[in-house]
Nucleic acid binder design. Structure first.
Lengths: 138, 138
DNA sequence: GGCTCGAATTGGACAAGGTCCAGAATGGGA
DNA sequence: TCCCATTCTGGACCTTGTCCAATTCGAGCC
């Protein structure tokens, strides 16, 4: 994750304690926290960090392309630090847990011109839904 | 849409003026209204209908599988009455307009076992993003 | 190390979308 | 027609997210 901090410094980001903490919280694979979860974990490391700062920082990370916004559940947006390897998501319908997945094939190629209605299509987002092993066992 | 009403009656739904109005508002193809839009249109037909009732009714329709919840934008859920023909969505990144699309191929088949992490996968949701002709012209 | 200043942070108010609940109204079977 | 379980209502309340004026602070420069 420190390479993230490096990249950000390279882009002229002023390095503050708050931003460092948010970046740390987001480290790892299969991490998909809501903004409030990020805030809760950030507060554990830096008690006086405010909600607004967390939202601002997440928004900036998204703008810079370092983090993806994912809306797999209908409630809060989730933030996915794994922005540099394209992937899709597999979501448990029961407990909401999320895994990154890499399907074969290219769904963009599966949308014929006749189904594009004149749109310039640039991106696809695929969400698989199912039941995770834990919830299936219960 | 009256076949919808028939089906609902068959399932033991008590047929009230409010539910009839919500069902009417949802009729049609490429209809993707937010709950508040549904409420606004319902009020036009039945002024005293309450927001809670619209939310309840939409929730019941979703549970019964008559209507799909779509979360293409990060703000409000949208409701898609076209639940009986599987389809995906094409969303304009600029104005948010939505079209139903029918890609070729089956994304479910594109997720190898090794990428399923033990999940029982039952469903896929594909959202294409792009720019619609109107917004491209502007 | 200190100064300086523009960028970053703060916290609290506000907005939108959605849920919940107790009490009132009503569809439809007997 | 009567009755009551189901449905509706209106408003309080919750969660997620945005905004803003005032304050603080990082880091380049001396």
């Amino acid at each position: 994750m420190s390479d993230l901090l490096e990249r950000l410094r390279g882009r002229g980001w002023r390095m503050t304690a708050q931003r460092r903490v948010v970046a740390e919280v987001l480290a790892g694979d299969h991490v998909h926290l809501t903004a409030d979860e990020v805030h809760a974990r950030a507060v554990a490391k830096l008690p006086e960090i405010s909600r607004a700062t967390v939202y601002n920082t997440l928004g900036e990370l998204v703008t810079l392309g370092e983090v993806l916004e994912v809306s797999t559940d209908k409630r809060a947006k989730r933030y996915d630090p794994n922005a540099h390897r394209p992937h899709h998501h597999l979501v448990c319908a029961t407990c909401g847990s999320i895994r990154d997945v890499h399907p074969t094939g290219n769904p963009l190629a599966d949308l014929p011109d006749s189904e594009r209605f004149g749109f310039t299509v640039s991106d696809v987002e695929v969400t698989y839904r199912g039941i995770c092993p834990n919830c299936a066992a219960a």
